[in-house]
Amino acid sequence: MLFPTSAVGKKIMMAITGQVLALFILFHIAGNSTIFFHALNAYVTALYKLPLFVWGGRLVLLLAFVFHIWYGTVLKLENHAAKPEPYAKTRYLQATFAGRNQIWTGVMVGVFLVYHLLQFTFQVTNPAVAADTHPDALGRPDIFTMVVQSFRQIGIAGVYVVSLAALGLHLLHGIQSSFQTWGMNNEQTLPVVEKTGNVVSVLLFVWYCAIPIAIIAGILK
């Protein structure tokens, strides 16, 4: 089959995996927002009572990640090879900073993800606040304390804000781009999709950043 090797097929693989990941990003922040209502531990505990959902989701995400990274790398290498010589003078009229640096924001998000998993999923970066070993008063893993304690350190909060900025930029190009790749565009919808993609990306960035910033600012404790 032509699909996974063709120019458009590879792009569609990027688009579909990207859209799965973007949906997860939305779901993730929606769930995490329970922190503002001091319901994070309850939410996580409830979530873990659905092992099929959790593990099924993790599998889908893992596959989406692997393919997204694989195709992203292949495309980047091909595209780089297709334009071996740069211009002495470069000027972009329409290509955005975000779009042109998609691979680098992607790498940043990837690296951050490893750190993020080690920190909050595997909980190895700071065993003193590891939720799995430090239950709260109701005996649930104390995710809330782990998160709050971690983000009180300005360095960690800083890493998160920078990484989330990278994620925001990645989405800024990625969301509108994925719709174009699916062919779900015409002259009228293209600017709408672009604007909506931009708004969603900025919203997600602000929303995600709200957690570490609220903690640093002492609003959430």
């Binding site: 590879k10 792009k11 297709a82 972009y92 009229l93 290509a95 955005t96 779009g99």
Partner: peptide, 12 residues
């Protein structure tokens, strides 16, 4: 040997 489209729209 052409590259793939990244939807930069620089072409347009």
């Amino acid at each position: 040997g052409f590259g793939n489209c990244s939807n930069h729209y620089e072409c347009e």
